[in-house]
Design a protein around this nucleic acid. Structure first.
Length: 274
DNA sequence: CGCCAGGGTCTCG
DNA sequence: CGAGACCATGGC
């Protein structure tokens, strides 16, 4: 990246935390320390200098949007809960941003995510791209719903999906058939949008909340996976651990940017577990 | 080898 | 409604 063509983008960010905190699965570290990946079907290289994002000038707008550089981090941090766990996660993850991912790509990867570790989701995502996606340079775009709607289930299982393969195909078909328009859904209120998403095969409340948070900018959505489940249990010190109790507790306690808080708590828990 | 992973769906009480 | 069985796969 020659500097005269490099754009320095506003808004502090930690690229490492943002791209390796389990919200997106296809970015790769290059030897020079920069990161390369596709935003939709555009190949982009980004790097970070003193907490500021740099990219090629021609990619500035799409990068600014994808990395959500206009999210008001200081305001979000002001709204973090005062309890020790939330504050520790804030200190540990400062600069982590919730991305604005393409809708279908985000929905599809999280359909494949159930009962899989982050490393596996990454492997499946790359295999799906290579097997079904359009080549873009040395990378592959994530295949659209039309392409996955006519995918062979056995070939999809060969990407490591197991029982998730028919779910992904079924949801791809609903969208390719025109029954569901993921872009049009963005005008729905969060509760209605969540209902629409959970109506799709392979999409329960947890996956729907991931998509709400990572692709529809619903920053109060809280995905509760096994890690966050444990964190919320610890915060509640033994009082009630049913799914609905924890969800209601998260809504009540994590504030207007609950999704951000959740992502910081998630990353902290995983880092400390290693 | 057994255990766990950013769960969803179906059944049964 | 809430709990439990079942579902594939791979890293450790």
């Amino acid at each position: 990246m020659s500097s005269y063509r490099t754009q320095h983008l506003d808004g502090p960010i930690s690229l490492d935390l943002t791209l390796r905190s389990g919200q997106v699965f296809h970015w790769e570290c290059l030897k020079d320390g920069s990161l390369a990946g596709l935003i939709g079907d555009r190949f982009v290289k980004v790097s970070e200098r003193a907490g500021i994002l740099e990219t090629d000038r021609k990619d500035a707008e799409i990068v600014r949007h994808y990395f959500a550089l206009n999210h008001p981090l200081e305001e979000i941090y002001e709204a973090f809960p005062a309890d020790p766990l939330s504050q520790e996660s804030l200190e540990m993850c400062r600069g982590l941003r919730i991305l604005r991912q393409p809708r279908w790509e985000c929905l599809a990867t999280f359909i494949t995510s159930s009962m899989k570790q982050v490393a596996h989701i990454r492997a499946m995502s790359l295999a799906i791209r290579k097997s079904f996606g359009r080549p873009v340079g040395k990378s592959f775009a994530y295949p659209g719903p039309e392409e996955l709607a006519r995918a062979d289930e056995a070939l999809l299982r060969a990407c490591g999906l197991g029982y998730r393969a028919p779910h992904l195909i079924a949801t791809a078909r609903r969208i390719a058939d025109g029954g569901i328009d993921l872009e049009a859904l963005s005008s729905l209120e969060t509760a209605d949008l969540r209902r629409a998403l959970t109506g799709l095969p392979g999409v329960g409340v947890k996956v729907a909340n991931c998509v709400l948070l990572f692709a529809y900018e619903r920053l109060d959505a809280v995905p509760i996976d096994v890690w966050i489940h444990r964190v919320l249990l610890a915060m509640r010190r033994g009082r009630g651990g049913t799914a609905s109790q924890l969800a209601s507790y998260a809504r009540r306690r994590l504030g207007p940017y609950a999704g951000y808080v959740q992502q910081y708590l998630f990353h902290r828990a995983r880092v400390l577990a290693k």
